[in-house]
């Protein structure tokens, strides 16, 4: 056991050091990523102005802006740039042979390296994030009593949903990448996934805005846990019993995708013929 922990620790440390090489580019890039939110803030201000500033889908203007800022946080946890395409490339080029001949589990190794990547990312990104949230602190003043700013229980649920969104995001993308065992080229599939992720995860707008039956459909698929759900929890939009149920559903999705990716990996290895490399 201690040997295994030592292995994990080494993997984690190597990946951390690798990541921190480009920290200047990192920090600038993170700050840039907030720029589209500036236009969103102005857009929604104009919309609320035209409506006579009544609440929209249960959100006040301030809550709208807070929502967008919070989805940036959830996406900082759940987004896995290059994970699926990396896995497919490794399968195609035969690079995954290195996991097969070494006593290292591929999914575990990738998970740890993502974990290290995220830690490195947060340690740099916390600066730009803190700056933006500080500048926008006014939008968080009038939140209801259920919001994470007032209720420790909501704050805990928010933290739990964020951690799970990381794990869910990882195993969901890993499952997509493992399709590479069956199809050699999955880039068009990944584009479709990105498209769905962009519009259905709540990255563009709070899903509460949708009319039925769309609302029910969007609720049933796991993508909402990648952006919408943690933000909605923070703002106190998910109440009492629903909160507990939804967290359990999120957990169930996490377990499902862990199981699915393990299963796909096992089955894929049987087909794998190790070209190239």
């Amino acid at each position: 056991m201690s040997a295994r922990i030592a292995t994990w620790w080494t993997i984690l440390r190597i990946c951390l050091e690798e990541r921190l090489v480009y920290r200047g580019d990192f920090a600038l890039g993170t700050l840039m990523r907030f720029l589209p939110i500036v236009t969103q803030i102005f857009l929604w201000y104009a919309i609320f102005e035209a409506r006579g500033s009544s609440a929209l889908a249960g959100y006040s203007y301030e809550e709208f802006v807070a929502y967008y800022l919070l989805t940036m946080v959830s996406r900082a946890f759940s987004s896995m740039p290059g994970l699926a395409s990396g896995i497919t490339r490794q399968i195609r080029d035969g690079e995954i042979k290195k996991y097969l001949i070494q006593p290292v589990d591929m999914l575990g190794f990738l998970f740890l390296s993502r974990f290290a990547h995220k830690i490195a990312y947060y340690s740099v990104a916390i600066g730009p994030f803190a700056l933006v949230f500080f500048l926008c602190r006014g939008y968080f003043h009038n939140l209801p009593a259920e919001a994470a700013t007032h209720s420790p229980a909501t704050a805990a649920a928010f933290a739990a949903s964020l951690v799970m969104s990381f794990v869910l995001g990882f195993y969901l993308e890993a499952s997509l990448g493992l399709i590479g065992f069956w199809w050699l080229e999955v880039s068009s599939l990944l584009f479709v996934y990105m498209l769905f992720n962009f519009f259905l995860s709540g990255h563009m707008f709070p899903l509460d805005m949708l009319p039925q039956p769309w609302r029910a459909i969007f609720d049933a698929i796991p993508l909402k846990y990648l952006a919408y759900y943690p933000a909605a929890v923070f703002l106190g939009k998910v109440k009492h019993a629903d909160l507990a149920i939804d967290l359990c559903v999120q957990f169930a999705w996490v377990v499902f995708f862990i199981g699915l990716s393990r299963f796909m990996f096992q089955r894929g290895l049987k087909r794998y013929s190790g070209f190239g490399g």
Binding site: A46, I47, A57
Partner: peptide, 26 residues
């Protein structure tokens, strides 16, 4: 098809906005 889908997604987003407001900006 991919760039068309991207466009349709955007169009859907704006159509959704206009179910909630008559105008953008008073």
């Amino acid at each position: 098809i991919a760039s068309l889908c991207w466009m349709l997604g955007n169009l859907g987003f704006y159509a959704l906005i206009f179910t909630h407001t008559p105008y953008i900006g008073r």
